[in-house]
Design a protein around this nucleic acid. Sequence first.
DNA 1: TCGATATATTCCATTTTAGGCATATTCCCA
DNA 2: TGGGAATATGCCTAAAATGGAATATATCGA
Lengths: 125, 125
Amino acid sequence: MEYIEIYKCLCERTRLRILNLLREGPLCVCHLHEILGEAQPNVSRQLGYLRAHGAVESQRHNNWIMYRLPDRRHPILEENLKCLQDVAREDGVFRRDLERRASVVRRIARTREGCPDAVRVRGCC
Amino acid sequence: MEYIEIYKCLCERTRLRILNLLREGPLCVCHLHEILGEAQPNVSRQLGYLRAHGAVESQRHNNWIMYRLPDRRHPILEENLKCLQDVAREDGVFRRDLERRASVVRRIARTREGCPDAVRVRGCC
DNA sequence: TCGATATATTCCATTTTAGGCATATTCCCA
DNA sequence: TGGGAATATGCCTAAAATGGAATATATCGA
C-alpha cells in the first residue's frame, strides 16, 4: 500500500504548492523559497520529505540544488499532477504561485543573475 | 485549497480500504467492520472522518447505517477512485477486501439474515 | 584559508492523528 | 418499558507531523 505515502506527499499545503510549481519545470530551493514565501528550512524540509518518498529528485549544480519531478513516476502521482494542472487554473494560491514563478524566471533571464549557467540551461531560471 | 482535505481522506490505510470497498456499492458499518477486521470504533471513526469531508454519505435504515460514495463527488476524489480501481487488481490487501466483500454479499443473499429489506434492496447485502 | 551564499539539519515545543477501551446513543422488538 | 443490536463518542495515551530558531554543511571565489 505504497500509495498512502503518495497521498501523504499530497496532503500538505506547502508540498502541494511545490509539486504544482515543479510541474512547470525544475527549480532550485532559493527560488521555491522566494516564490512560496515560506521560511527556507520549511521549504527544505518539505523537499526532503518529497524526495524521501520519490515524488521529486534533486541534483546539485555548484552551490544550487535543483529539484524536479522524476521522469518515471508512480501512476497515482502522475494522475494527481494532471489534476493539479486543472485545479491550478481556478485556485488563487496555485495561480499566484505560477505567476510568481513566471516573474522570477523572467527576471533571471533578464539580469543573468542568481543561477549558474548549468542551472539556467536546465530551465530553472 | 480544499483538495488537501481530499488527500487527507486518502492518506490513511483504513480510509483507503473503505473507499475501495464502497466503489463496488454501499455497505453498512457492521459489514465494513467484518470485512476489514478492524475494531468497530475505528471503522466508525474513519467513516465519520470521510463523511465530515464529503468523501462518503450515510443514510440510516432502521438499525443500520449505510455508507456510500456520494453521487456528486469532487473531481479529484473521482479521479483517485478510478486509480483505486486499477490499483486494487494488483494490491493484496485491496483484493482480499473485495473478495471478502463478495463473500459477505453472497452469504447474506443466501441466508437472508443480517440486513433489513431496505438495505438489501440497496445493494448492501 | 576565509567569507559569503545556498541548503540541510538539529533541537524543541506544539498540534494533530490514530487506536484501545469503555460507554453513550439510537432503534427495534418482545 | 426493558433488553439487545448497531453505531457513535469520550477519554486517554502514544506516535507522528508541523514549524520556528539556531546551527551545521557544502561550495565557490577572493
